[in-house]
Structures are given as C-alpha cells and as structure tokens.
C-alpha cells in the first residue's frame, strides 16, 4: 500500500504537544490508522503522556488510559479482561510505550502479559533513551551514544528487546521504523488480525534527543536501516522474515551503508569522530557484524 492510500481518518489530532519532527507521533499516526476507531490505548509515562496535551484537553481521538511508568502491559491486561467480561472481544487494546516503559522499568509487566498470552498489541516506540526526563540512557541506548547519564558515551551495547520477545513464543513480533510507514502499516494490520500477544518495536529517531535537525528525522531512520544499525523484520509463529532494505542486506544482495554515514549527523555520536576514539568506532562496527551474523543464523533457524 502506498502512503497516499492510507486511510484518511486521523486519531492523533492537530495541536498535540509533540516536538516538530517527532517520530513517536508520526509513527503513532500510522499505527492508529491501521487499527481504526475501535481501539483503546494505554500509555505509561513517556513523551506520549505529554504529546496528548494538558487536561482538560486531549489530542487523541481514541480512548486513552494513562498509567504508571512500569505498568502499561498490566493495565492493558485488566482492560482486555474487563472488555471480555462485558462480552466485547474485538476492541483492539494497544499499549504504546517508550523504550524505558518496555526495555527497562516496564519489562516485568510486559513479559508477564506476553507469557499469559493476553490478546493485545504492545508497541514500543524506541527512541533509544528516556526523552521525557531529558535524554538519559536506557537499555536500548546504543554503545557510544552520549546521553545526560552517559556524557562521554555509553559503555555497553543495547539489549535487543525484540529478540527477548521472540523467546516468549508469542504469535507475532515485528521490528519496524517510522521512516517506512507502509511497512509499519502492514505490520500493525497483521498484528491486528492475529489473536494473542503481539509485540512491535518501532525505531524512532528523536531530533532533540539524538541531536540532529528536525527536518531530517525520516532520513535518519532510513540511514539506520540502510546502515544495518536497525533491521526491519517480522516473526510470525516462529517464521522470521526480513522486510524492506533489511531483506536485501540479510540476503547479501545489498551492501550495508557505512555506519559513519548514519552517525555523523547525530550530535549524540559527535565525540566519536574526535581523534582518539577510533577504537570505539571499531567496536560499533564489529558489534554490527555480530548482530547481522546472528540475524542470519536466526532467520535460517526460524524458517
């Protein structure tokens, strides 16, 4: 489906409080178009809690329950059970959480709901840090990135939440990126058609957090995918399929763009380009090889 063919309905309204060039609100706009009106959202503490706007107004056109930072998947479990008790088994229950609310503090509730097989869609928009509180590191922050709690660059690699969710043996896991809205739309539609726990992660390049000009948000997302720093794929009932440019990279039909092309426009990596930091660049490149090696092994297992 082409962008122009996406439904015209808008559930994220104008006048919301997102930063210009915000990837979270862009991605959410597409997600809600795919899910439609019969959707209830749960949002933990994160940028989206702010994007809504201030009481008594709201920029959302679907019912939305705000909940504590670590609690989103548990809240959605309660809502789903409550709807079921009322004979409503078809409202989409959507969790929309940042990487903090999924990778870190929200992980226990996420894992619990996935293990229980609750019929819901959990989407992590991953901007690779805690934006809401002023750009601190998270478990999703990549090695080398400067944040306000890793000023000179993070010393650890990020964990890979999608892989962890695959290990929950849920019917659907997908990795997407805001810069590929058709791919994202298709993945959300597929998730919507499947019963059980569905997990989707969306890379969300955040202009103020990653420190690049807001007009290049879409381009940053594309570079992430083209350089292999992010991958587009889906795992449906243990069958792993790469999509978009990631498919070509996996199959060796396409070269990964050099990571420096991805990193050079982002202030969070600028210190890595200073003399003396060549070793750190090398670590990133080597890690990327390991990641793609694993993707190849995984996708040949999960056929």
């Amino acid at each position: 489906m082409a962008i122009k063919d996406l439904p015209k309905d808008e559930y994220l309204l104008k006048g919301n409080a997102a930063c210009p060039g915000c990837p979270a609100s862009q991605a959410l706009r597409v997600v809600l178009k795919a899910l439609g009106q019969n959707t209830t959202m749960v949002v933990p503490a994160c940028c989206t809690a702010v994007i809504q706007g201030i009481y008594p107004k709201s920029a959302f056109n679907v019912p939305l329950m705000n909940i504590a930072f670590e609690a989103a998947a548990a809240c959605a479990s309660g809502i789903k059970a409550g709807y079921k008790a009322q004979g409503n088994d078809d409202t989409n229950v959507l969790v929309w959480a940042g990487d903090g609310g999924s990778y870190d503090i929200g992980f226990q509730a996420l894992s619990g709901a996935a293990e229980r097989g609750t019929d819901m869609i959990f989407i992590c928009y991953n901007n690779q840090m805690y934006s809401n509180t002023g750009v601190q590191r998270s478990g999703a922050t990549p090695y080398g990135a400067s944040t306000t709690t890793t000023w000179t660059g993070k010393l650890e690699h990020n964990k890979d939440l999608s892989e962890i969710m695959i290990a929950h043996h849920i019917p659907y896991v997908a990795s997407a990126c805001v810069s590929y809205p058709e791919d994202l739309y298709a993945k959300v539609q597929k998730a919507k058609s499947i019963r059980g726990f569905k997990f989707i992660e969306i890379l969300a390049p955040c202009p103020p957090g990653w420190r690049f000009p807001m007009e290049s948000m879409v381009e940053q997302g594309r570079l992430a995918v083209e350089s292999g720093m992010w991958a587009l794929y889906e795992v449906e009932n243990d069958k792993m399929t790469f999509t978009g440019p990631s498919k070509g990279i996996l199959e060796g039909l396409r070269q990964r763009k050099p990571v420096v092309e991805y990193m050079k426009a982002q202030g969070r990596f600028s210190h890595l380009f200073k003399p003396g930091n060549e070793g750190k660049m090398k670590i990133i490149e080597q890690h990327l090889d390991v990641v793609w090696d694993r993707y190849r092994k995984q996708s040949s297992c999960l056929k």
Binding site: T40, V42, M65, I67, A68, E70, A71, A73, A74, C75, A76, S77, G78, I79, K80, A81, G82, Y83, A85, Q86, Q108, A109, S111, G112, E115, R116
Partner: peptide
C-alpha cells in the same frame, strides 16, 4: 488474571475498573 506481581495485580484491577466492570 493471574498476574506476575502485586504491582501488576493492582494495575490490572485498575485497568479492568476503567474498562467498566
């Protein structure tokens, strides 16, 4: 809902109540 913690027990009870039951 046989949740994985009391934090989630209370949260799920909150979610359920908000759903209208």
């Amino acid at each position: 809902i046989c949740v994985e913690s009391e934090h989630s027990a209370m949260t799920a009870a909150i979610g359920a109540s908000a759903s209208g039951v």
